[in-house]
């Protein structure tokens, strides 16, 4: 019965993936191109986000971000590990966010 439904899901996945991959390729192409830049090739240059920026961008996608003073350093450690799973954060991102919150409380 489900062959039609599997086909629907597969089609949605393929179309969405191709669309997003296409968007991603076009975006990264602009970022990596040094053609209009007199300062040379910046393709290897990466700008890392700070813990404060990551905190502002990621936490509020699902819930109001609590004030850093709402929890102690130890509590932020535990919350960070929990939210790393929930929000799909990397270890580096989690560490930056937790460090920012611990320094701000």
């Amino acid at each position: 019965m489900k062959y039609n439904n599997f086909a629907k899901i597969a089609l949605i996945l393929i179309v969405t993936s191709l669309t997003l991959i296409g968007y991603g390729c076009s975006t990264s192409g602009k970022l990596a191109s040094p053609e209009n830049d007199d300062l040379g090739d910046f393709s290897s240059f990466t700008m890392e986000k700070s813990g404060a920026v990551l905190w502002g961008e990621t936490c509020s996608r699902c819930h109001n971000a609590p004030d850093p003073t709402a929890f102690s350093d130890q509590q932020w450690e535990a919350i960070g590990q929990h939210m790393r799973i929930c929000a799909g954060l990397t270890a580096d991102e989690t560490k930056k966010i937790v460090t920012f919150l611990q320094q701000s409380n």
């Binding site: 489900k2 969405t16 997003l20």
Partner: peptide, 20 residues
């Protein structure tokens, strides 16, 4: 579930999920 976040600031997310 697969989640796609195409923007650099992670503001947009498109998710596809299934259960069988």
């Amino acid at each position: 579930r697969l989640g796609f976040l195409p923007l650099n600031n992670s503001a947009l997310e498109v998710g596809l999920s299934a259960q069988y």
